[in-house]
């Protein structure tokens, strides 16, 4: 039975993290990997080109060596190895998984914050501090989104948890109570 993407990604990420940690290059590796992910995200055709049959092996190798340019030793090796083993399709998943494990290691959280209006600097800081306290984190990375339909308040997604403090949800809840009684 073939392994699913998540299992594969978990194994590669774990190996990379252990290696980078031993060499004290975690921070640099992490930064390089997120910029690599940006490359994949900015060029949606790249993955399918590497994965598909439209390019010859030689052309693909050329693309890979372009990707490796400027990368540190570990990241370059990772790219090469993932490509050689035919798992380039799982690259983004590996990076996601790496980030997740790295977050757990340094107590960092990624939070998606949905608000009705753009957060200002003060609120942003308050939000970060509140989340850091709640989730016992040292660092909070906010991904802000604006959605006027929630009327007010905020919805925060952290990992598998959702904190919903939006006015819309509260109104719905009140409506449910009034209609059901």
């Amino acid at each position: 039975m073939s392994l699913d993407q998540k299992t594969v990604a978990g194994r590669y990420a774990k190996a990379l993290i252990e290696l980078a940690q031993a060499d004290d290059q975690l921070k640099q590796t992490s930064q390089e990997l997120s910029s690599l992910r940006d490359v994949f995200k900015d060029n949606p055709g790249l993955l399918s080109a590497l994965n598909g049959t439209s390019l010859s092996v030689g052309q693909k190798k050329g693309l890979i060596s372009d990707l490796k340019q400027g990368a540190s030793k570990y990241v370059a090796n990772l790219i090469q190895m993932v490509f050689d083993y035919g798992r380039i399709n799982d690259m983004v998943a590996i990076i996601d998984e790496f980030e997740k494990q790295y977050d757990a290691l340094i107590k960092r959280i990624h939070a998606v914050v949905v608000t009705a209006v753009q957060l200002d600097e003060k609120r942003r800081k308050e939000m970060s501090e509140a989340l850091a306290k709640r989730f016992d984190a040292k660092e909070v990375v906010l991904d802000e989104k604006v959605d006027p339909s929630i009327i007010g308040g905020a919805i925060v997604h952290v990992g598998g948890q959702t904190l919903d403090g939006s006015v819309n949800t509260k109104l719905q809840e009140m409506r449910r109570l009034l209609v059901n009684n």
Binding site: H157, Q161, T162, L163, T169, K170
Partner: peptide
């Protein structure tokens, strides 16, 4: 209305999602 809303608590709902 107050009576019906007596059970309502103004709290943030915390949910686990997938």
């Amino acid at each position: 209305i107050k009576k019906q809303l007596a059970n309502y608590e103004d709290s943030i709902s915390v949910q686990e999602t997938g």
